[in-house]
Design a protein around this nucleic acid. Sequence first.
RNA 1: CGGGGUGUAGCGCAGUCCGGUUAGCGCACCUGGUUUGGGACCAGGGGGUCGAAGGUUCGAAUCCUUUCACCCCGACCA
Length: 509
Amino acid sequence: MQESKPVKIYNYHTIKEKMAKDFATRDENYSQWYNDLVIKADLAENSAVRGCMVIKPYGYAIWEKVQAQLDKMFKETGHVNAYFPLFIPKSFFSKEASHVEGFAKECAVVTHYRLKNSPDGKGVIVDPDAKLEEELIVRPTSETIIWDTYRNWIRSYRDLPILVNQWANVVRWEMRTRLFLRTAEFLWQEGHTAHATEKEAIEEAEKMLHVYAEFAESFMAIPVLKGVKSPNERFAGAVETYCIEALMQDGKALQAGTSHFLGQNFAKAFEVQFLSRENKLEYVWATSWGVSTRLMGALVMSHSDDNGLVLPPKLAPIQVVIIPIYKTDEQLAAISEKAHEIMAALKAKGISVKYDDRDTYKPGWKFNEYEFKGVPVRLAMGPRDLENGTVEVARRDTLEKNVFQLQDIDTKIEHLLDNIQENLFQKALSFRERMTFNADSWEEFKNILDTTGGFISAHWDGTPETEQKIKEETKATIRLIPINGKQEEGKCIYTGKPSQQRVIFARAY
RNA sequence: CGGGGUGUAGCGCAGUCCGGUUAGCGCACCUGGUUUGGGACCAGGGGGUCGAAGGUUCGAAUCCUUUCACCCCGACCA
């Protein structure tokens, strides 16, 4: 990029003043900013069904990229996809005690299978004669139906391991919902594996945690902490819950993925046994792991700014947009010809590029549009560029504009995209580092929560009671207990009792 | 389920207290023209059961009663 010469960076304050004040800034109102962004960048909108969202094409395109990459990573680690039913017989649920307890309060239940015309002629009613023998639960997660199925699949150690994933929707009847972060219905993947030994199952749960972490950092450009959940925060039915945790720009934590070692809990509940090499009947060891459309929320909140969405190149549906600037049809024709050459070169490198030659919008309008939608790189080409053999290149992450010579433009853009991807990660990482604190006293702990927020590394006496008290008093929870955390003598931040390791606290989404 | 708030054009709002022309404004939309290197301008135009039902009145967006929906704050959560 040595041929590029810097030009004046446009003054964005001018733009902000000119822009219709229809969009909150992060400082004014962070949660409003998030809502505005999701809606105005066309990612999703609220639907006619309370708590359920419509994921719009642009948002769904990002989700498809997430899916495609994760699916590839799952396959590379030996997993295959399958599909299990949306409905789960109610009786299945009661088989694993802590599992029921965890989900009972948020289940949608199907009780009937038919409607009929209302006797008063006003619409339709549920036909009371069509009551189901056994009510069906709309899955909030699929452990029960899957383990009921696995019972029939597993006879011997030769049938193991089973490494299955499914892409599905699930329903959890939430009181309060927010687009992507918490919706009554959401999309996710859930991996469900069965193993002959405890060791193998634990290794699987840990392996998938690392897959998630790798995905978050390399593709979403979001740095994550890896650890295990405290008993309070553990998945209902799990022996151990591993998690990755990210820090949002407002200093709140967001759980970005979980992987569970389920022990033999579900195998025992569903009588799933196998004959070992030693011809002994044993219960199967299990894991499950998932990430959801919540990742979309994490993506938005990690990188975006007051000018709109900022997308990491690896997940951006459109990586490069080209906008022609012209007065006459002749100019447009000449620019279009050049633009198509550039497009072809970029596409040959696997870069997704859009040429926006609509004459129904002005260039300035388009600049704002793509900026708001987080397109990583924008090329603008006008008569002046045509004359000079140049193109104006604007990058979304830093808002810088430069003029590039057209020679080897494809390679330059390719490098620029890599550079943006890396820059976003580094920016998020240094933010997290700035926002991670050690607290050694209760005063210090509360002070951090009230001023900056962020991750707080502190000693904890290891009891659920203490965690609960801290939560009640500060709304902060233990986000995770770091894996391979440093052993260090200390005193619990709350009770003063001895502790061997710091854990990570934060207020969370 | 508790506490607060809002329902008027696709979106954002004014009008409601104190009832009275044809319900108004900005954005968006449509037509024509001039424009096009950071959200263009001018002119013209279309679009409303004023959340719903009932009542008071000569007359209701406005007053009364009932009801529904949504949003925000809390308890629950990937």
